[in-house]
């Protein structure tokens, strides 16, 4: 079984070497999805669950292969950006692609250099403190951040989604300033806050579901309305911060990919996304299960970019 799959993997590698143009019946060979993050992250799990459904329910008649590219997300994104638009190469990424181009324009990776395919679900964020923290509510926290600006050590990944959430909170509460420290992603930040090295961090709603039993507390939720899983946690907007901040799972193809391939992939993702298994996965992960494609998605990308651009500028290292 495994051997046969490995052989099909080798066959895929061979077909990747032979570059060709997609035509006739799409898909004509295995589909490669680049996840520009290591395995186990939010984007990776979403891609893999969709992969599982697409293969098990035979949504497409070709296998789907996931390729993780770790390191900075722009490395994997660039691989897709510069790949042959053969109709069989796709990228799954989130808001980082949009904020990243503002944080470091020199890198030359922009969402405008891709063909948008679809949007499958998304997730929002929680500001997190330790269970025994003196900050019982978001108000406590923000008051403290105003009284002594720049003293609350806040673990983030500089320039990334959790950092942006912190900046949105600062902007929503003038005078409040956090002391951002480069810690990394969810796992690292959870360890740092439990070890007392940071006092505040931001976790995605999915990450919070994994760690919440271990002595941490969410002060708010950055989504438009309270999570069904966590009806106790108020939204940032209810608390008067006046912002919503969520990331969605974006799918892109290299620029110049054929209409047929883009529509075909979008249709396959739409079908898999709507399956009860996928929706159940989303709610278990505290994600939302929406879907977008075509012009709606294209316009959505532009409007998201406009909202985050000014805040992303603040996230750029000085």
């Amino acid at each position: 079984m495994l051997m046969r799959r490995l052989i099909s993997g080798v066959a895929l590698a061979a077909s990747l070497l032979a570059t060709g143009w997609a035509n006739a019946a799409w898909p004509e060979k295995p589909i490669r999805i680049v996840v520009p993050f290591g395995p186990g992250g939010t984007s990776d799990i979403v891609a893999r669950f969709l992969q599982k459904l697409i293969e098990e329910k035979k949504v497409l008649n070709q296998p789907v292969v996931i390729q993780n590219v770790s390191g900075h997300f722009s490395v994997g994104a660039r691989q897709v950006m510069t790949a042959q638009p053969d109709g069989h190469t796709f990228l799954i990424i989130h808001l980082a692609l949009l904020s990243g181009e503002v944080v470091d324009p020199k890198r030359g990776v922009s969402y405008r250099n891709f063909d948008p395919v679809a949007l499958t679900g998304g997730f929002c964020f929680h500001p997190i403190v330790r269970q025994d923290s003196p900050y019982k509510t978001l108000k406590d926290l923000l008051d403290a951040a105003k009284a002594a600006p720049g003293t609350i050590v806040t673990g983030v990944n500089i320039g990334a989604l959790n950092h942006m959430t912190g900046l949105f909170m600062e902007r929503g509460s003038p005078g409040a300033k956090f002391r951002f420290a480069q810690i990394g992603g969810g796992g690292e930040n959870f360890a740092a806050i439990m070890g007392g090295h940071t006092q505040l961090t931001v976790l995605s709603s999915s990450e919070y579901q994994s760690y919440k039993a271990n002595g941490i507390r969410a002060l708010a939720y950055t989504g438009p309305e309270r999570l069904k899983l966590e009806p106790e946690i108020p939204t940032a907007r209810e608390l008067g911060l006046g912002f919503e901040y969520c990331a969605e799972n974006f799918w892109f193809a290299p620029k110049g990919t054929s209409r047929e391939a883009i529509d075909g992939m979008a249709a396959a993702l739409e079908k898999a996304n709507a399956m009860p298994e996928m929706q159940e996965f989303f709610s278990r992960q505290a994600q939302t299960g929406q879907f977008m494609k075509g012009d709606t998605y294209r316009q959505h990308l532009d409007s998201v970019f406009q909202v985050i651009e000014p805040v992303a500028k603040l996230a750029a290292p000085q």
Binding site: P39, G40, G41
Partner: peptide, 12 residues
């Protein structure tokens, strides 16, 4: 113990 992946193998 914590659900934190310490390395690549753990992450997978």
């Amino acid at each position: 113990a914590l659900g934190i992946p310490g390395g690549l193998a753990d992450a997978i």
